[in-house]
Every structure is written in C-alpha cells, then in structure tokens.
Design a protein around this nucleic acid. Structure first.
Lengths: 194, 194, 194, 194
DNA sequence: CATGAATGAGCATTCATTCAT
DNA sequence: GATGAATGAATGCTCATTCAT
C-alpha cells in the first residue's frame, strides 16, 4: 500500500531524471536540450519547469540522489582508523558504488569542463578531496600521493576506457579494483615505512 | 632578425589558434563562442572564417599542429622492440610531449563528451589505441592491461588533478611519470613472467 | 457571433501565413527574412519557430492549405471522361481556383528557381503533370501537347502579365480563360480528328 | 593575328560571364554567391571586382551582351508595316534568338521576383512591351491581346516546360513556334476582321 | 500537473564588398 | 590583373526560461 503511493502519479520527477541522465551521459550536458528531454518524455518543456527550477537543477538533483551512497561511504571512512585494511575496504565499496551509478560517473568523467562551472563541480571536488584525505597521508611522499590519485582515477575512468575489450563488465571491474588496491597498498607502505 | 619578418602580418591564423585554445581549455568548446574568440583578437567573426571553414576546423587544426610530436613518437615506438626499456622510454617522452602541449590535453581531458562527436574524437582514439598496443601485450592478463591504461590515464590526467598541491609542476610531472613507469613495469613483468 | 471566438488568440499561425505570403509574393522567398515577417507581426523571430519548424515549412504549409482546392479539382477531373466538355469545365474551375489564391500563384510564377529546390517544387510539378494528363492525350501530336501546356501557362501567368492593361480583373480572367479554352479545344480536335 | 589578340589574356571578363550565367541559371541569382563563381573560375572574389563593379553588374552585362540581337529585332520590327507577315517573321526570328540564348532566358523566366527589383527588370519589361506593341493593335479586343501575350509566353517558357517530353529540342522549338504563330494569326484576324 | 504561446539572447555561418599591396 | 585579409550586416535557427490559463 505504501510502496505504490508515489508510483503512478508523482513519478514524473523521477522519469525526468532518468531520461535526462541518459541523454546527458550520451550526448553531454550542453548538447542536450530541454526540448529533447521533454520530447522523449512526451511532455512539454514547461512541465519540466514544474518539477525543477532550472536545467542545472535537474543535474544537481540527479547527482545528489545518485551519489548519496558515496557520501555515506566517505562519512564512514572518516571514522575508521586509517589502516590499510580500511583503505582497501573503501576502494572495494567505492568501486561497487561507482558501478551502481555508472551513467552518472561516465557523465562526470566526460563533462568535466562543463561541470567545473556548475554547482556540482564544487560538490564533486569536495568529495574527491575527502576521499583522498582518507586514502593518503597529507605529508606522504609526492609519488605516493600520485599513486592515490591514480587509483581513484583508474576506478573512475577504468570501465569506460576499456570499452573495446570484450570481457565481461564485472570481471573488468574486479581487474580495475585490483590495480587500484595495489596502488593504494604501495602508497600506504611508502608512508608507513618512511 | 629573420624570424620577425612574418610576425606582424600573416600570423593571424596562429593567433586565432592560440586564443581559441586558451578559451577552449578554460571554458570548454561549446561554451566558447566565435564572438568571444574574435573579440579577444580584436577582429570580426567573419575574419575567423577567412582562416578556418568552421569552428570545428579551428579545433582540428590546433589538435593536428600540437599533437604531431606525439604522432611521431608513436610511429617511432612501433618500430622498436617491445622491450621494457622501450616502453619506459616511450612514457618518458610521452610525458614530456604532454607537458609541452598541456592546454590542449587539459582540454581533451575535460571535454571528452564534446570531442567524442567531433572529428578529433576518432583521431584521438586511434592514437590512444596505437599507444596501448605498444605498451601492452594483446594477450596479457586483464589486470596488466588495466595497468597500462591506468598508466596512460595517470599521465594524461595527473597534472591537472593535482592542481591544489602546491609543489612545482616539473616535480609533479616527474612523480606522475614515476608512477606510470611503475605500472608499466609491473605489467611488463606480469606478461613476461607468465 | 460564433466565428469570432477563436479570432484573438490562436490565430497566430494563420497570421504568420498571411504575412509571409504577402512578403514572399512581393519580394520573393529568399529576400524575405524571418526578421521581416516577425517584425510585421510584432512578434519575435522565435515565435515563428514555435509555429513552424523552418522557413521552408511556412511556405509548404501555405502551399498545402491554399492549393487543396486545386488538388480536389484534379482528383475530380481524373474520374471524368476525357471529353472536351470535361476539359473545358476543368479550365473554368481551375481559372477560378487560381484567382482565389492569386498571391500564391503569382509567387510560384515568379520564384521558380527557388521553388525548384524546395519541397513544394516537387509537389507543384506533380500537380501540373496531373493536370496535363487530363487535358492532353499522351500520344497526341507534339503541337497539340504544346497547346495544352500553353493553355495552362496562359492561365497561370495571364493575370500578372496584363498588369498594365487597366481593364477590370474579372474581365481579364474571362479573356484569359477564353484563350485557354480555345487552345484546349483546338488540341482536342487535333487528337480526335486524327 | 587579329582574332587571337583578346583571347589568351583579357578573356577573363568573358569567362566570368559564362560561369556566372551557368550558375545563375542553374541555382538562381540569390543562391549563387560570388565565392562560388570565383571558385569555379579558380580566381579570388576580389578578381571579380576588378572586372565588374557589383554582382548585379555581372548580370546586367550578361543581359546586355546576350540580348542585343533581340533589341535589334525589335528595332527592325518597329519599322515594318504591321502586317501579318511581319508579325510571323518576328516570331520566327524571336524564337531563334531565344534558343540562341536559352540559358539567359531560362534564368529570366525562373527568377522574375529577383529580376523585378534589379535594373534588368525594367530593361526586360520595356523590351516585352515593345514587342507586344508590334504584335498587337493597342485597341484590339482584350481576348486578342491575351492571345499575343500568350504567344510570347509560350515562346519564352515553352522549351523549359516540356523538359520531360523526350523529343528533339529543335522539333520542340518548331512546335512551340507553330502554336505561337497560330495565336498571333488569330489575333491579327480578329483585329483586322473587326 | 501541465500546456500553449512567447521571449530575449545568443550562435555559427554566409555574403557582397573594400582596399592595400 | 589580381590577391590576401578583412569587414559590417545579415540570416536561419536554437535555447533556457516565463507565465497566463
């Protein structure tokens, strides 16, 4: 009884987000017009404005909704001891979370120039710095810092970049994760050993 | 004495490319209008069209001009034995070449969605695949393939991503290179050892 | 009483067509800009695009709306016996239909080069061939075929060409029609007598 | 020795006219740009301006050069007795002259809207009135006046309109001429008989 | 909840034309 | 006799946004 209530009516907002993310990811933010979104939903442009104040707000709302799990993960990570185990666990969960919201992150990856000037640019940057601070010692060796960033980078871009390799997505994710964990592990040893 | 002669006149094409690249890198391709470029050069939009057939052609010409060294490097790499030393040498030179054309590659990095539908998308993709084929064994372990891609990724994105770390750019480049070389080395050993 | 209700609002599409046809006929299609049309209507250019997808579509819509009677006439003609009486009746009605949509046909007459490359070029050509097939025997004498075409030509161009002759338009139309009927009659006798 | 002198050099003006007429006839005046003409001639736009002051002047010069024979014909006609024989002779010669400058007259036919606002509009109109005055009695029956105009019309448009009929161009011209002569003859009898 | 109608600002592109060389 | 470089004005079109209904 409860689950259905917001299904039939009131799901337009959700449908807008879905279609918009699809188009944003496929064509980029700037090249996707509200007309296109509206047409694909078979509503008028004006309808979009009933649900969202601006085009940017559609994007922000998608980002906020889909990236909450990551937010939580970071919050959790912050409270753990900065041990290697924690770091590895973070990467594992992060990798899963990324996979779960793949289109969004493909979009983020491919539209950095756009995002930079949008509100989510700041949001995303803040988040990445949060992650980095958990994974790396602020006074670690520069090379080790790069390793951390590289690990994150690999996680983020990994799946899209191996498009042409046929192998199964889940296997790919595992391989990408392994490399990331390796990098972090090396970085951790560097800092710890020093 | 001699080099100045073609400075005053006849350098407009070049100036257009410079200004355009600056703006493309700063604001993105779509958000940069020809009006903006023209204004910054203090010429009319029509003047741009005297030198280039379309907006896209401006970008393509920049890409072609600035990335020729990379093209050459790949050509060179293809003829070397696929030894670890070659691979390391490639990365070293590639890193230098990227640094030399940093704004272009920052642009490429941040405007992937845009680029994908432009002609340079294909050009770039082809190039990256060329590089990958030199650096990695086609029947290498999936994890090792990821390491290679990761190395390339790190090289490409590395410098832009560490914006906030204050340290000197050249040091950063070295650090990034070291990580990339590490990754390639591990990958090479994986393939060789198997 | 009833007819006025949808006058004020919702007639914009129609008003656009009217103004556009006026300008197209007066200045030609290419020399009429959307800015001009919009200004004369006291709306913005963008408003035109709410009602029509392209400039060409404005023209097509005018053509389709105004030339439907001719379409019908041809359809009717096709089902009649190809007797002289039918042919004469066709010309009579055709002449009236042309007069009723005079500005459109003046436009068609005077912008053939333009029209040829537009969609209505094909539409119009097809229609003319339809008419010709009713009026003339496919294996008639070449001279008689010319007479038919000449009759149509006279009907089409007749009124515009006699601009300077002062006499009353309706009289002119009658005179033009008489010549056309004469031509068709001669042509018919030629074919029948052979 | 004499004939060659203006051949190699100094024929550019002529070549411009040829190419321009070709394009004007094919695509219309407005849709033909000077860039196109220049490109097809493999010279720069600026070169066109060495030979002609404006785009319009190119057209005017073509018209003047190619229609001089018609001018002469009319001048001749004006001095003859307004007998039926004269009229028939005029039509015969006129038909030949039109055929000799077919592309120009196809252009005139198809670009009336454009021409009307250009200088050649007046030129052409004046000429047509001149012809009409030779062919028709000013106080002839309205119907007979129409017949004359119709004859002219048929001559002008005839050849282009029968494009799809396969028969040989010269035969077509003859047929068209025959119909025109017929019309004029009828008109003449009408006036004479009254 | 949503539409129909419209706007204002902007964009890439094209054109006829000019002029110093 | 011609070019290289540029301009000013315009064009068709698209977009995010608004608002009365």
């Amino acid at each position: 009884m409860d689950g259905t209530r917001q299904r039939r009516r009131g799901n337009t907002r959700q449908r807008i987000q879905d279609v918009a993310l699809g188009l944003f990811a496929e064509q980029g933010y700037e090249k996707t017009s509200l007309r296109e979104i509206a047409e694909q939903l078979d509503v008028t442009k004006a309808a979009l404005y009933y649900h969202f104040k601006t085009k940017e707000e559609i994007l922000v709302s998608i980002f906020e909704d889909l990236s909450r799990p990551l937010e939580d993960l970071i919050a959790w990570g912050r409270e753990q001891p900065h041990s290697l185990e924690t770091k590895q666990e973070i990467l594992r969960r992060y990798s899963e979370a990324l996979a779960a919201a793949a289109p969004l992150f493909r979009f983020m990856q491919e539209n950095q120039a756009t995002i930079r000037e949008l509100r989510i640019g700041e949001l995303f940057k803040t988040r990445m710095f949060g992650l980095r601070d958990i994974l790396t010692d602020p006074d670690a060796d520069l090379v080790d810092q790069v390793r951390c960033v590289s690990a994150l980078l690999t996680l983020h871009a990994g799946m899209h970049i191996l498009q042409d390799t046929e192998s199964d997505p889940e296997e790919k994710r595992k391989a990408v994760l392994e490399v990331a964990v390796d990098l972090i592990t090396q970085a951790h040893r560097g800092s710890a050993g020093a």
